[in-house]
Design a protein around this nucleic acid. Structure first.
Lengths: 226, 226
DNA sequence: AGGATTCAATGACATTTGTCAATTGTCAAG
DNA sequence: CTTGACAATTGACAAATGTCATTGAATCCT
C-alpha cells in the first residue's frame, strides 16, 4: 500500500485528486495539506511514501518546501504538479531532488502510474518537461571551448591529474589541494600546468568549468586505473 | 508520416524493429544502418525525422555518431536504445542532445509512443533513466559550498555583477571581460570583489562553479531589470 | 542648491596562479 | 650496473587576480 500525501492550496484539486486516488487499489491518501508549512508538519506525523505537490502556493512555495522535506527525509518521493512548465521552476525542483514533474493537465492514469513508478525508485516526467530537462542538461554541459575538447584528448590524463581536476572543480586553492593530496604546492602547480597543456585550456577557472561540464566530477577516483 | 531510421549492428534487432514499426500507420522506416559511419552517410541521403540508435556499436559508437548528426542537423530527433543504463552513456548522450533514452527491454508500444512524442518536440525516457538523469542533475547542481548560498543572498546582485558572473562562468579573463562589457579592467576587478563578498566566495574559480551550478548561466540578461 | 547614493575608474599593493628548468629518487628493462 | 622513464620536488620568475582607499561624474531625492 502506497501512502500518498497531497499538497495544494486549491480545495477543488485536493479533493478531486483525493477522490480519484482513494478509489485505486494499492494507493492510500493518508494526508492532505494546503501549503508548505502545513505539509512539513504533516510529513512528520504521517509518513507518506509519495507526495504530490503543487509548486505555486501562498506562504511557503513548493520549492522551499521540497528543500526542507529533502533535508528531513531523503526517501520520501516528491512529484511536482504544476500548471506551468517554467524553466526556473523545473530547474529548482530538479536541483532539490524532485522525483517527478507533471503538468496539471496530466490524465489520472498517468498520475497513478507516476506514483507507482516513483515509489519504486524511478522517475516520471511529462514529456514536455523531459524535453526541457534535456535542453537544460545539454546547455549546462556545453560551452564553446569545452566542446572543442575531444574525448581523445583527455584519455591520457594521469590519475593525479584527474584528482587535481576534481579538486579544482570543487573550488579548492592550490594550497588546499596540496594538503588534501599530500603533494607540495609546487607539484600541484606543475600538474595543473600539464592539465592546461593537455586540455588546451588557459587557467584553473576553465579547468573548473570543464570539470563540471564533463562528467569528471561524478567519477570516483579511488583505486581507479587510468 | 514519420520517417524513421534504425541504427543497430545486430541484424535481428534491426529486422524486428523494422517489421514492427512498418506495420504501424503513420510510421515509415526509410532506412536502416549497421554502424555510425553507415548511419551518417544515410542521414544525408534519406531525411529521417527520428533515428532509433543503439549506443554500443563497432567502429563508430552511438555517442560519436549522435554528436556528428547533431552538428549536421539539429532537427533530427534521436532516441538512444540500449541494454545498459550506464551513467557515462546516459551523461554523454544527453550532453550531445539525445531526445530520448530507452532500454532495450522496452515494449513496442512504448517505443512507438516515444517516436511520436519525440517527433512532436517532446522527450521520452525510460523511468529508470529519468531517475538517473534527475540524480545527475541534482549532483551537478550541488556542491558543499554552493548549497550554503541561500536564495536571499543573491537577490541583491547588480545587473553588471550578474553579467560578470556569467562571463566568468564562460571562462573569460578580466581583460576579456572588460573588453566585452566596455569597462576598465580595474572596474571588472572591483565588481568581482563585490561579487565575492556578496556570495561569500573566495576567488573567480568558485564564482565560475557557482555560476554553472546555479541557473544563472541560462539567464538572458539583455534588457533585464534586477 | 546641497547631501546622499550609485557607477566607473585609478593606482598601489599583496596574493595567487602559471611556467620553466633543474634536481632527486625509484623502478624496471636491457 | 646502467640507462631511461617517470613521479615528485624546488626555486625563481612572470602574469593574473583580488583588495582597498580614493576620486570624479551622474543621478536622485525632498
Amino acid at each position: 500500500m502506497i501512502e500518498v500525501m497531497i499538497v495544494d492550496d486549491q480545495e477543488i484539486i485536493r479533493q478531486s485528486l483525493e477522490m480519484m486516488l482513494s478509489s485505486k487499489p494499492g494507493i492510500h491518501v493518508s494526508a492532505t495539506a494546503t501549503d508548505g508549512r502545513d505539509a512539513i508538519a504533516k510529513v512528520r506525523m504521517k509518513h507518506p511514501d509519495v507526495i504530490l505537490m503543487d509548486i505555486r502556493m501562498p506562504g511557503m512555495d513548493g520549492i522551499e518546501c521540497l528543500k526542507i522535506i529533502r533535508e528531513l527525509n531523503k526517501n520520501i518521493k516528491v512529484i511536482i504538479l504544476t500548471t506551468f512548465d517554467d524553466d526556473e521552476y523545473i530547474y529548482e525542483s530538479l536541483k532539490y531532488g524532485a522525483n517527478g514533474f507533471l503538468l496539471k493537465g496530466t490524465k489520472m492514469a498517468e498520475i497513478i502510474k507516476a506514483i507507482e513508478v516513483v515509489n519504486n525508485g524511478g522517475a516520471m516526467m511529462d514529456s514536455a518537461v523531459s524535453s526541457k530537462v534535456l535542453n537544460l542538461f545539454a546547455q549546462m554541459a556545453k560551452a564553446d571551448y569545452s566542446s572543442r575538447i575531444d574525448d581523445r584528448d583527455y584519455q591520457d590524463l594521469t590519475l593525479n591529474e584527474l584528482k587535481i581536476i576534481q579538486a579544482i572543480g570543487q573550488g579548492l586553492s592550490n594550497k588546499e589541494i596540496s594538503a588534501g593530496l599530500n603533494f607540495s604546492e609546487g607539484t600541484v602547480r606543475n600538474y595543473i600546468s600539464s592539465v592546461l597543456r593537455k586540455l588546451d585550456l588557459r587557467d584553473r577557472t576553465q579547468i573548473a568549468i570543464f570539470a563540471i561540464q564533463s562528467s569528471l566530477m561524478l567519477r570516483d577516483l579511488e583505486g581507479e586505473e587510468e
